[in-house]
Design a protein around this nucleic acid. Structure first.
Lengths: 209, 209
DNA sequence: CCATAATCGAACTACAAGTATGATATAAAT
DNA sequence: ATTTATATCATACTTGTAGTTCGATTATGG
């Protein structure tokens, strides 16, 4: 078989497997999805799964990677679109919130937080805590936009400020997601209203950094 | 055996087991510590362990609970000690950072985030995402201190503001912890310097909420 | 000493990840 | 058309660990 065809086939199979895994991960949760489940859903035998992926973790990471590409694409638009720093900032926040809502099972993975649980092999030290460089670049770009229009102080390094921004935004989203019930019942606002308020407050900290 | 004595014994055994588990969890990590390890370390048989704890998760949660008590104790001091809102706020931040440094294995648990991984049983829906009410109370107390001295606006509900504060602070700490290496190499500041800077920025957002 | 409760030890189940192997189907090369 | 290579399958296996069971053993108290 030609190298071309071989690669096409490989991609085809990996895609099928990933599609099946995505469905199961989102409906039943990553931990409660077994490799046999994935094999059944994808209509492959388990051994074939292991031809294309060396572990369940690799499948999970592949999905995270895919979504990361999607997300960085959306973020790139949010950031480069015309409009002020403030507008871009809010677009970014919005992007992340919507992503978290659509794909809660992977949000943690995107933040480079939750390695897969229950894996036999010790987690890959190299990737632990690593934020995708493209993502970092985008955030830095956003910060620099703010600096250019004098909304942000130039005293703090852009990458450091980007890092701070990211930690704040993701902290806000994470907690809001985890406790949305309380937000509604106790604070008597919808999650969205709370979030937009929180992001606005946080914005204040950025422009006075 | 008298009821008194029975309870004392139960406590004694639970304490021994927890002490052993703590050591192993901190040195080898929660996931890489087996029940047999704990039994060996505590010098009990595995069956006895299961007399006092119904699962590994219960052991973990017990430890988290203990530490939570410790932490809320420290936070109570940080908050009620004399001094301005600003000073209390920074003491609280400091408390949390030091706690995370001392007990990284449990920090996530304290934030009500990471249920134990790899557990056979599905995680307890009731406790998922629950923040200890005492902790919440303390944070609200802090916010109210700030309102009383007119540092904080009274427009936002105290519990909502407390929630925002908590999500920001914990977001900052989490990411700083996960990526301390990059902070030092890329931003050329120590983690502590970065954190104190970040907390100060975040403070700005609070007083302009 | 006897009854009761605590503890032990060791074998066992259940379950999921990952591996190994030999059978079978499919397609390319001769 | 026959051989050869490769993709896929089915199944059984290994390994690791949580959690269970139960009869044997060792305190402890009356």
């Amino acid at each position: 078989m030609g190298e071309r065809k071989k690669q096409a086939l490989e991609r085809f199979n990996r895609d099928n497997i990933i599609t099946a895994a995505k469905e199961l991960f989102e409906t039943h949760g990553v931990d409660h999805t077994t490799m046999d489940d994935i094999a059944r859903q994808a209509d492959y035998s388990k051994s074939t799964i292991y031809v294309y992926f060396k572990s369940k973790e690799e499948i999970y990471n592949s999905i995270v990677h895919d979504y990361m590409d999607m997300l960085t694409g959306e973020l790139a638009i949010a950031i480069t679109q015309e409009g002020s720093f403030s507008e871009s900032y809010h677009r970014v926040c919005d992007c992340l919130v919507r992503f978290d809502e659509r794909h809660p099972a992977y949000y943690a993975g995107l933040l480079g937080e939750a390695q897969m649980t229950g894996s036999r092999k010790k987690q890959d030290e190299a990737t632990r805590g690593t934020i995708a460089p493209e993502l970092e670049q985008l955030l830095v770009k956003l910060i620099e936009k703010g600096k250019k229009e004098k909304t942000l102080s130039t005293k703090v390094k852009s990458n450091q400020l980007a890092f701070y921004m990211w930690s704040g935004i993701s902290g806000i989203i994470r907690l809001a997601d985890r406790r949305k019930a309380e937000i509604v019942t106790q604070y008597q606002v919808t999650k969205d209203v709370y979030l937009s308020h929180a992001f606005s407050m946080f914005y204040e900290s950025l422009i006075r950094g």
